Simulated scan of single mutants.
Amino acid sequence: MTDSLILYSNPMSRGRIARWMLEEIGQPYEVRYLDYGAPMKAPEYLAINPMGKVPALVHGTRVVTEYAAICAYLADAFPEAGLAPEDRSAYYRWLFFGAGPFEATVIMKALAVEVPEERRGMVGFGALATTLDALETQLARTPYLAGESFSAADVATGSQIGWGLRFGTIEPRPALQAYWDRISARPALQRANDADNAAMPPKAG
């Protein structure tokens, strides 16, 4: 009997990335949705994730938080899914690029926070255009971030690209749009989105 996989999430969160990854590995799992506010700060959940946020993955007795870590963990825990390449150099690079400088600069853009040019060396990402240049350069070399095959890096960092394109926080450069069109057509993402969309709260009015 294998250990159970339980994802704590919210349909309006980065938990969508973790759910996509769970669909990619093809193993049974359970999703427990938490509302923002009191449910995420309840003692029972803080015992799982002291940050009081989602996503959090419980695999048997093991707990993994942070969406990029969940993607990397699942790729290693279920190697038969083929989502972690043997050569991990580009894989690690772009997996953590997405969770680090790229996400940070996209959030700064969404918050309309501008880092003065003379202080960009302090923030670790420089400018949004610099991060987009880096992604564009990589995707001009290979169809996926880690090389010729789809990997967990595409789930984690690709999701950030998709959200940026959807919400207008990154410019729709042709190479990035073509990449997102390619990976967003994956059946696993369609299944994950259908399930999370069904769990969205009804719109007022």
Rank of each mutant, 00 (worst) to 15 (best):
A110V: 10
K203D: 04
T169A: 09
Y91S: 02
Y8C: 03
P11V: 13
A99C: 11
P85Q: 05
Y92I: 00
G37Q: 03
L5Y: 10
A110Y: 10
L83P: 01
G126N: 07
I161N: 02
L95C: 07
T61P: 09
A127K: 14
I161M: 08
A204P: 13
Q190Y: 04
A56Q: 06
M122E: 15
V58Y: 15
Y179T: 01
M200I: 12
S159I: 00
L83N: 00
A69G: 03
R14V: 01
G37Y: 10
M122I: 06
M21H: 03
N49W: 01
P187Y: 04
P143R: 05
E24L: 01
A84M: 04
P28V: 07
G26R: 00
A56E: 08
R62I: 14
Q177P: 01
Y73R: 03
P101H: 11
S149D: 09
M122V: 13
L95Y: 02
H59W: 05
V31D: 12
Y29L: 06
F78G: 00
R166W: 14
G124S: 08
V113G: 02
Y8Q: 02
L57W: 09
D35G: 09
E136P: 03
A198D: 05
Q160L: 06
G158N: 01
D196H: 12
P39V: 05
G37H: 07
E80M: 15
K53M: 11
G60S: 04
A146P: 08
R19K: 11
C71T: 03
P202Y: 12
M21Q: 02
A127N: 09
L5I: 11
E136S: 15
E24D: 04
P55Q: 11
C71K: 01
G100C: 07
E114W: 09
G98H: 04
P43Q: 15
A192W: 13
E148Q: 10
T142I: 05
A153E: 01
D196L: 06
P201M: 08
P201T: 07
E44W: 15
R120G: 04
R182W: 06
A81R: 02
A42C: 10
E44Q: 14
R88L: 03
L34F: 07
G121T: 01
L135Q: 04
N10A: 00
P39K: 05
G168M: 07
P43W: 10
N49E: 03
V63F: 12
I6S: 00
W20E: 06
P187K: 12
D87H: 07
M51S: 08
N49R: 03
L128S: 09
